[in-house]
């Protein structure tokens, strides 16, 4: 009737010699006792179990009580906020007003948050002249100030590598150099988001919180990111930064000119990255790191404009991209004079 392997269930090795003293042994097939298992008299043990469960729950409530501070940081509106691409203009207006209000409350600064959209037909690219860069780090500092970075860790989207002449192997590099620059036997290579055309960070994001916009900039919706840091693991350029804690910025240092997808103060627990200062560049202005560069090593422009400086570099200089073998197709180029 049953396949033999099913019958195996019958011969259980799990049967114990000793009967469980409290266990229900529904051996009395009594008609009155319809629920011999559920209708047991409330034993002392059951009561104790209930007390234990209640104590356990209370202890659990106490254990997670630090979460009570969260409602200050996470409003219901923020919790229910939709993905950036699904927001209507009215939604955005409301959300930006709320974020401005929150910045005022938390940082004491009056800021304006705007929604900068790509300029039609423009595609941004960046180039750095490694013959000129002398590793002075002004770009890092400008980024730090422009983009409302966490003051505590001197956060910046740029890292400048000091490499010995004769190699491009980053293994030989150093970012913590702290001496007069440039050293005779060294050259310097700033690395920031390469705004890849095939961005691994966008591919891996499980919630589409990061994406590539039409002008080539890879952006993050800080209010949609769940903080899994998969993009940080995927990025080959160390371009992504995580907000390990709520950023601290003195009120007078907060840059009030803010973009929703760019330099507004990021929430704790979310990912951020270089966005080519889109709140500036989408208004036609130059990125902060370029303006700060005292050596003029930085070149920025529109790839779709044949007369742009960036196209001049591509056509007249010998350029290379970092880690080309990974197929990320950066919009960020390096060249030597």
């Amino acid at each position: 009737m049953f396949p033999p392997y099913l019958r195996a269930h019958r011969t259980s090795f799990m049967n114990n010699h000793a009967e469980n003293p409290d266990g229900p042994t529904p051996s009395s097939g009594n008609d009155q006792d319809l629920l011999p298992i559920l209708n047991q008299p409330t034993t002392r043990r059951t009561a104790l179990k209930a007390v234990g469960a209640a104590l356990g729950l209370a202890a659990f409530g106490k254990a997670i009580s630090p979460l009570a501070s969260i409602p200050e940081n996470v409003s219901v509106d923020e919790f229910l906020q939709q993905h950036y691409k699904e927001l209507s203009d009215d939604d955005k207006e409301r959300i930006f007003a709320r974020l401005e209000q929150e910045t005022k409350e938390s940082y004491g600064a009056d800021v304006t948050i705007s929604d900068h959209r790509p300029i039609p037909g423009v595609r941004f690219a960046y180039a750095i002249n490694l013959s000129k860069c002398n590793g002075n780090g002004k770009c890092m500092e400008a980024c730090h100030l422009e983009n409302n970075h966490h003051r505590g860790v001197d956060q910046s989207y740029i890292r400048v590598l000091e490499l010995p002449k004769g190699t491009l192997d980053m293994e030989e590099g150093n970012t913590t150099f702290d001496h007069t620059v440039p050293q005779e036997d060294k050259f310097y290579m700033p690395v920031q988001c390469q705004q890849c055309d095939n961005p691994p960070c966008v591919t891996v994001c499980p919630v589409e919180a990061t994406w590539k916009e039409d002008d080539g900039i890879v952006v993050v919706d800080y209010n949609w990111c769940i903080g899994c840091r998969y993009c940080e693991a995927a990025c080959p350029y160390h371009a992504r930064r995580f907000n390990w804690e709520q950023p601290e910025i003195p009120a007078e240092e907060v840059n009030p000119d803010q973009g929703y997808l760019s330099n507004r103060v990021r929430p704790q627990g979310t990912m951020e990255k270089c966005h080519f200062c889109l709140h500036r560049t989408r208004e036609g202005r130059l990125p902060a790191c370029l303006e700060a560069c005292p050596t003029g090593a930085r070149v920025f422009g529109d790839l779709n404009d044949p007369d742009s400086p960036i196209n001049y570099v591509l056509q007249n200089k010998r350029v290379f991209v970092l880690k080309e073998e990974l197929g990320t197709r950066p919009s960020f180029f390096y060249f030597f004079d």
Binding site: N136, G137, H179
Partner: peptide, 14 residues
């Protein structure tokens, strides 16, 4: 020749 400089801003990661 462009002057030498002393960097004033460095990454301060933990």
């Amino acid at each position: 020749q462009f002057p030498r400089m002393i960097p004033t801003f460095k990454p301060d990661d933990r």
